[in-house]
Design a binder for these strands. Structure first.
Lengths: 246, 246
DNA sequence: GGCTCATGTAAAGGTCGTTCACATGAGCTG
DNA sequence: CAGCTCATGTGAACGACCTTTACATGAGCC
């Protein structure tokens, strides 16, 4: 028991050398396992092979570690959303949906980050850096919505991009937290979370009058604002953005 | 200090008489104050004026108390959604939106319940009774979606009611958890959460081809499936389901 | 009146978060 | 290279919490 500890210490010397990073990694693993609520400062220290007091040399308290993780999460989140958006290629609607899927993919593949970011209950405004990182991530969605709004079919009023961005965000977050997380809140679904969100976004965009096929738009040459009544021939599956109706 | 305790005990005798209920109420208050994560079994006991061990006569552990609260929350949730739906009066779309607003109102007015139900991190399937209560609440939305789906404009494929229900749920939950809760995750918004959700649902329904005005429908006499290109004259605010575009 | 058992208490063990005085040693300074 | 300094880690200690255990109380029933 204490033998292990001495062993550990012998291997790495009195000073760890990279404790801050080790703690972040350990915490990330623990949060992925047991959720942000179940994660423990002492456990992270143990996992890094240091005493329970050592972490306080690198983080004011447990919340600051959590907040650091959340911030890092928002940064990775932003970069993944940016990559998914790919500046709107090959066409705005396709890229937009890809952003939605990237949102879900992040929630699924990085449960620890997602948990720290959205479900750990720490106030967004506790840390200015955290707030800024969160804002930057949201701005990717906002910018994409901006581009999309600019494509609004002529003749219809242009939807506010900010509103669209908030709508999309709420859809993605709703699907992610209700249906797309590993441990909790899993319900039996008739379709995958990805399909669910994709259909939701497509229907929403159609409600705004957007053509929801996937053909790349030539600039300034959008298809006419014809409602997709029978959208045969478009990229939308026949029958609409959902599977076969019963 | 110990004087108070004796005083308390003198007032109520050795046996509390209604401890289980008192603990539930105390926990509810504490969760509303500090969130499910910050709520403490010992605190609830203190608040009820009993020793820290007493609660274990009524709940296996802290999680069971939390789970009881979540279950009670789902029951109240169901009853409020049911009332809001009002069996689809005066017309399906209006009633449907009222359900959405009721969802947000519940999240806002009963933060403790909402927290225990959706943000406490307890597994839904831990308690069969909890799971059942959750299912019953969701079924209100599901039934409403069923009715709505039956009104799908003829000529368009009928959307699966289950999918619609999941979509609406995810929207409401997304808006509620991102924007409509007191302490955490509050962002600056160009509109209220209620307006945000209402617009989101209206646009979504329009995307499904539903007429989104509010006139009561005569049975079997739905308006034609005309797309709301310029929806002047309908109950939808001019310019669509959002405020004035800039 | 006396028994029984649900309901309460006190005490104790284990874990955590956090602080404090002290130990260690890496890196600079001369 | 000797010596100093200061960031970094240790161990002990405090109070709070969760949970269990042995014991106390008294309400309801015979």
């Amino acid at each position: 028991m204490s033998w292990r500890k001495e062993q550990r210490r012998a291997e790495r010397g009195y000073h760890h050398g990279n404790l801050k990073e080790a703690l972040l990694q350990a915490a990330l693993g623990l949060i992925a396992e047991k959720g942000a609520a179940g994660f423990t400062f002492a456990d992270a220290a143990r996992m890094a092979g240091v005493s329970a007091a050592a972490p306080y040399r690198h983080f004011r308290d447990r919340d600051e570690l959590l907040s650091s993780i959340a911030q890092r999460g928002f940064e990775q989140f932003e970069s993944r959303l940016t990559a998914a958006w790919d500046d709107g290629r090959p066409d705005t609607v396709t890229a937009f949906e890809r952003v939605g899927r990237a949102y879900l993919a992040f929630a699924r593949e990085e449960p620890a980050f997602y948990n720290a970011m959205f479900e750990s209950g720490l106030p967004v405004d506790s840390n200015p850096a955290l707030q800024a990182a969160s804002e930057r991530a949201f701005n990717v969605i906002r910018a994409a919505a901006e581009r999309l709004a600019a494509l609004a079919p002529p003749g219809t009023p242009r939807p506010p991009a900010m509103m669209m961005a908030l709508h999309i965000w709420s859809m993605a977050h709703g699907v992610a937290s209700l249906f797309s997380r590993g441990d909790a809140a899993r319900r039996k679904l008739p379709m995958s979370p990805d399909e669910l969100l994709e259909a939701e976004v497509l229907i929403y965009l159609r409600g705004l009058g957007f053509p929801t096929d996937r053909r790349p738009q030539a600039k300034g040459a959008e298809p006419p604002p014809v409602p997709p009544e029978a959208s045969s021939g478009s990229g939308v599956p026949p029958g609409g953005p959902w599977g076969k109706p019963k």
